[in-house]
Simulated scan of single mutants.
Amino acid sequence: MSTAIDDALLQLTTALTRLEVAVGQRFEAERDPSDLETELAIMGEDRARLAAELDAASARLATVEAASDDVGHRLGRAIAAVEGALVPSDGLR
């Protein structure tokens, strides 16, 4: 008997899902065109803002990468200098 109830619940869930989809499609079809224009304008503004933020982040990344390269080179020179100071000049240890 629980199978019949489970089947009925599945059919009900399926029917409700189809009804929700149909209602959503109906609302979309009846939507005011000015709402769509407003939404497109907002999306355009968001896109422009995100593009500007991406450009700024890319510039900051380039600055950080350049600084990282510089630090890496300086660190390499410092390591070489310390190693040079620790190794005896006559090659004996």
Rank of each mutant, 00 (worst) to 15 (best):
T3S: 11
T3Y: 02
A4P: 02
A4C: 11
I5E: 03
I5L: 15
I5N: 00
D6H: 03
D7A: 14
D7W: 03
D7S: 12
A8C: 10
L9Y: 00
L10I: 06
Q11G: 11
L12G: 04
T13K: 14
T14W: 00
T14N: 08
T14Q: 06
T14E: 12
T14H: 01
A15I: 00
A15T: 00
L16D: 06
T17R: 04
T17L: 00
L19E: 11
L19S: 07
E20N: 09
E20A: 05
V21C: 02
A22D: 08
A22R: 10
V23D: 03
G24Q: 10
G24R: 07
Q25Y: 00
R26N: 07
R26S: 08
E28G: 04
E28W: 05
E28R: 14
A29K: 14
A29G: 06
P33H: 08
D35F: 06
E37L: 14
T38M: 09
T38F: 06
E39F: 06
I42W: 03
M43W: 04
M43Q: 15
M43K: 14
M43D: 10
G44F: 07
G44K: 15
E45L: 15
D46H: 07
D46M: 14
R47E: 13
R47P: 02
R49A: 14
L50K: 12
A51T: 15
E53Y: 04
L54Q: 09
D55H: 03
D55I: 10
A57L: 13
A57V: 07
S58G: 05
S58L: 11
S58C: 04
A59W: 00
R60I: 08
R60P: 02
L61W: 01
A62F: 03
A62W: 00
A62D: 12
A62C: 04
T63C: 06
V64R: 05
E65H: 05
A66C: 06
A67K: 10
A67M: 11
S68N: 08
D69P: 01
D69S: 09
D69E: 11
R74S: 12
R74M: 13
L75D: 06
L75R: 12
L75A: 13
L75Y: 04
G76P: 02
A78P: 04
A78V: 15
I79S: 05
A80L: 13
A81S: 12
A81G: 04
A81R: 13
A81Q: 10
V82L: 14
V82P: 05
G84P: 03
G84D: 15
A85G: 05
L86F: 01
V87H: 07
P88N: 15
S89P: 07
D90M: 04
D90S: 05
D90I: 00
D90F: 01
G91T: 04
G91R: 14
G91D: 12
G91L: 10
L92W: 04
L92N: 08
R93C: 08
R93Y: 05
